[in-house]
């Protein structure tokens, strides 16, 4: 109950502190592991190189993929700040859902991108325990 209240109160007494500072930004990368052979790391849902204005307008009305991507960013941040099984499960399941079925294990890591002076730096802050892909895909179905 206390947890629910702590989730509810910020919605009715909001802080409204949008864009106060630009904190390190997480990217989710995953790899598939077959036996002892880990594959390469891939970025989950890389953004498109370019969008036309018409596509941008259409995505204002219908864009479930982007909204899910932003939700995953939230989960990634929560996983660092206040680790929970919920955030871990949400990332695992939603990453697995987009992958082809297979016997591999799925592992993801969180790479935080930030600026140090004029340089853009990337830091791996989390690596998950590999879990069977098939099990996750069953959950997601």
């Amino acid at each position: 109950m206390l947890r629910l209240i702590s989730l509810f109160l910020p919605t009715v007494i909001p802080s409204w502190r949008f864009f106060q500072t630009v904190a390190p930004s997480p990217r989710i990368e995953y790899r598939l592991i077959l036996g002892e052979q880990p594959g390469d790391w891939h970025e989950d849902r890389p953004r498109p190189a370019h969008l036309s204005f018409a596509q941008i307008l259409r995505r204002m009305l219908w864009n479930p993929d982007w909204n899910e991507q932003l939700y995953l960013v939230s989960c990634a941040e929560r996983l660092i700040e206040a680790p929970s099984q919920h955030s871990l499960d949400e990332i695992n399941t939603r990453v697995a859902r987009l992958l082809p079925k297979g016997p591999q294990l799925l592992q993801f890591r969180l790479v935080f991108v930030s600026r140090e002076g004029a340089r853009i730096v990337k830091l791996v802050e989390y690596e998950s325990t590999p879990v069977p892909l098939a099990g996750l895909q069953e959950e997601a179905a």
Binding site: S15, F18, F19, F53, L70, S74
Partner: peptide, 20 residues
């Protein structure tokens, strides 16, 4: 905001990278 970030300013209100 919707054109650049596919969001309003409200998307940054809580738990995403540009945080309070």
């Amino acid at each position: 905001n919707a054109c650049f970030f596919a969001s309003t300013g409200f998307s940054g209100s809580g738990s995403v990278p540009i945080r309070p």
